[in-house]
Design a protein around this nucleic acid. Structure first.
Length: 720
RNA sequence: GCGCGGUUAGCUCAGUUGGUAGAGCAAUCCGUUUACACCGGAAAGGUCGGGGGUUCAAGUCCCUCACCGCGCACCA
């Protein structure tokens, strides 16, 4: 005890404390619920609390967004554990297919190595090496954050068990015709050389040039003259008074880029009469909307642009040119032919770009794998995946916090198209389908006979993430963990991945298990810099590194700065001043504890003296306070609770009770009562502070007389 | 265009059944009384974006406008 006292005499130093405390926790193995039961700190029949960690991508370092997620979830887990619940918080990482692959490609580019030169196998070795390295970094950084994750159950979206789960899920969906292969218009990312899903598109507003050309008797507008070679359908609104002389199906011959073509007139209500001239030509191969029209009227579809954004032979003299190089030359030719009517250079266009590579998305008709979201499923009461997803949230089986995201969720589902799940990249789960001539074979394992060739494509990374709540628990095997912990209690994640992930998990779980994946979804906001910028990869080195903050101010201070004033769904501006303030608070706790320890020597802890009237009243106040914050904890109102505890500790316990006790102890008037109050108050306050500030509270707890166990498995104060 | 969120003290933000506005930081004044100067005490600071309505009572409910941010859709 003497060396500890010496430590207490100096200001609180998180750096000297945190690593040791984490080691202590790890050695105790209390992060593992099985150990908690074995050591008698959790009842075997206790209520379950389970939660998966949204697996960080193995693409580098932890950023402040991760830190926020880890802090909120650690509070949830520690609170549940202290309530005596059988608590599992399960860690893992995500292979993040496109993100990881493109990162490695970029690194190889620096050494002038292309992945095609390496070949699939060699390239994958490089990616795996990088993934392993990133994984190790991330795990180390998570531990620095103080997380009470059960590392013994750690999973990876691409490990053996998860691969088995993915293949099992794929096969089941394939057998029930929910997964199909077909030619559809998809989003082609020429930069990443892969298809991406609708959700992986980021729209950017860009200024571009809008041209109006003469097209026979009409004038048509376009921002993309390079796609216009094959345009032989001209569409207008059936009620447009300007074009009543033309009938649906009329054919006309018009002079166009490479000579005369025969065009067919179509009348359709999709046309906006107010826009431009109210006439447009269509390019079904390279536009979602035009494709839909072409399907409706069974029109010809011609490919104009190849996968590398080069023009095909249909472009005549322009064939082989990149679209960006060809554009102006095409315009010039049309101008020379007298077909250019006008040019608007201030046109604002919304350009579809690929989330991960930044490439400009070029719609293409391609053969890909899809998940049918509208097909009625016999084994699920003839409901479609869409309906299953709507039902989960609509019935409140899954509750989303804050509630407003439920609306976004419904809106997304109502506009949902079939999910394109195949990707032309190498890193990820290879599609478990094999071909031999015209035969197709789908199974968890490859066919035994020779001569079968596996599909070269891999799965959208969110396919495996969708299984995460149960694949991590051993599914498809009926493991004890799966039976005990699924559905999980809560999913805590950023609101930016509600569609990518939350919706997909509900889809997969409802379909494969007939059950929800979690009962509650808690969505946190995005972390921003002090000047409001989104703290993301694009900020690069300018982003705050949570580990630097910890180094400077300590983990507990960072945690409070992320929790106080941060309500669900709202963005958080991380501000160094706040962090500094909470570091002061840590010191305050430290010093107040020192005072208590110095003054309670000699107390009979088994038989505490009675409170005098004044202290009894303060004791009641604390009980009232606990009641209040416990209710709020159960409502996930961490911002409020943390602020209240901060205030209670500082301005009630330290400023009033400790000051009052000084008098009593010095004057020898009801000194025992004062000492008993200091002791019991500190014990209780450390407990309720622990989920928020685990390190300093555990450290002080270790100096506490009469302690039985680590603070992390002590009971949250319960009032009858 | 449709929808959602925000607009509260100089700054960052809380404020859940409607009952005369709160915290942290900053700024002001006083105080070095041994747990803590990474401190204590005091005072100051807001017509809760504008306008209208419901109500005995509105930051809180309704309508409307403005600005900021976000989601979705369209963009020939």
């Amino acid at each position: 005890m003497s060396d500890i006292s010496e430590k207490l005499l100096k200001p609180y130093n998180p750096k000297e404390t945190e690593d040791n405390i984490y080691k202590l926790w790890e050695e105790s193995d209390f992060f593992n619920p099985d150990t908690c039961i074995a050591k008698g700190v959790t009842a075997p029949d206790a209520e379950t609390f389970s939660m998966v960690l949204p697996p960080p991508n193995v693409t580098g370092n932890l950023h402040t967004g991760h830190a926020l997620m880890l802090v909120i979830e650690d509070i949830m887990a520690r609170y549940a554990r202290m309530q005596g619940k059988r608590t599992l918080w399960l860690p893992g990482t995500d292979h993040a297919a496109i993100a990881t692959q493109s990162k490695v490609e970029k690194m190889l580019e620096k050494d002038k190595i292309r992945k095609a030169d390496l070949g699939r196998e060699e390239f994958l070795k490089k990616v795996e090496a990088y993934a392993t390295e990133s994984h190790d970094t991330i795990v180390t950084q998570c531990k620095k954050m103080g997380v009470s994750l059960d590392w013994s159950r750690e999973a990876f979206t691409l490990d053996e068990k998860r691969t088995f789960a993915v293949r099992t899920a794929f096969k089941k969906m394939y057998d029930e015709d929910l997964i199909y292969r077909g030619h559809r218009i998809v989003n082609w990312d020429p930069k990443g050389q892969t298809v991406i899903s609708d959700d992986e598109i980021v729209y950017e507003e860009r200024k571009s040039t809008f041209y109006t050309f003469r097209y026979g008797p009409f004038e048509i507008g376009t921002a993309r003259p390079e796609t216009k070679f094959g345009d032989k359908y001209v569409v207008m609104h059936p009620e447009d008074p300007r074009y009543l002389e033309w009938n649906h199906g009329d054919k006309i011959t018009v002079e166009w880029i490479n000579g005369p073509i025969e065009a067919t007139i179509l009348k359709d209500e999709v046309i906006d009469m107010q826009f431009g001239t109210g006439v447009m030509t269509i390019t079904p191969w390279h536009s979602h909307e035009d494709f839909a029209l072409a399907e409706k009227y069974k029109l010809d579809k011609e490919q104009i642009i190849d996968k590398h954004t080069k023009l095909l032979p249909i472009a005549g003299e322009f064939a082989g040119m990149k679209i960006n190089d060809a554009r102006e030359k095409i315009v010039q030719k049309l101008k020379d032919k007298g077909l250019l009517v006008s040019v608007d250079e201030k046109y604002i266009n919304r350009v579809a770009t690929a989330e991960r590579t930044g490439g400009v998305v070029e719609p293409q008709i391609m053969e890909q794998w899809f998940i049918d979201v509208n097909k009625k499923i016999p084994s699920r009461e003839n409901k479609s995946l869409k309906e299953l997803m709507l039902e989960a949230v609509g019935s409140k089986s899954v509750k989303i916090i804050p509630e407003r995201f439920e609306k976004e969720y419904f809106h997304w589902i109502n506009n949902l198209r079939d999910w394109c799940i195949s990707r032309q990249i190498w890193y990820g789960h290879r599609i478990p389908v094999w071909y031999k001539g015209n035969e197709m074979y789908c199974d968890v394992n490859p066919p035994k006979e020779a001569g079968w060739e596996q599909d070269p494509d891999t799965l959208d990374t969110w396919f495996s993430s969708g299984l995460w709540t149960f694949s991590t628990l051993g599914w498809p095997e009926e493991t004890e963990d799966f039976k005990t912990y699924h559905p999980t209690t809560i999913l805590e994640t950023g609101h930016d991945i509600i569609f990518f992930w939350v919706a997909r998990m509900i889809l997969m779980s409802k379909y494969l298990l007939g059950d929800i994946p979690f009962k509650t979804v808690y969505m946190h906001g995005m972390v921003r810099t002090a000047d409001g910028k989104k703290m993301s990869k694009s900020l690069g080195d300018k982003a705050i590194d949570p580990l630097d903050i910890i180094e400077k101010y300590g983990n507990d201070a960072l945690r409070l700065a992320m929790i106080v004033g941060n309500t669900p769904g709202n963005d958080l501006k991380l501000n160094e001043n706040d962090i500094r303030g909470y570091a002061k608070f840590a010191n305050k706790i430290w010093n107040a504890s020192r005072f208590v320890f110095e003054n309670i020597k000699g107390l009979d802890f088994d038989n505490l003296p009675a409170f005098d009237k004044e202290d009894a009243s303060s004791d009641e106040d604390l009980k009232e306070f606990i009641k209040e914050i416990t209710k709020e904890m159960n409502e996930f109102r961490y911002s409020l609770v943390s602020e209240k505890i901060y205030h209670y500790f500082w301005h009630t316990f330290a400023d009033i009770l400790i000051e009052r006790s000084k008098k009593k102890i010095q004057e020898g008037q009801n000194a025992d009562s004062a000492k008993a109050l200091l002791y019991t108050h500190l014990v209780t306050l450390l407990k309720i502070l622990h989920p928020f500030m685990p390190f300093i509270t555990e450290e002080i707890w270790s100096m506490m007389p009469k302690k039985k166990n680590l603070l992390m498995v002590e009971r949250w104060p319960v009032l009858k």
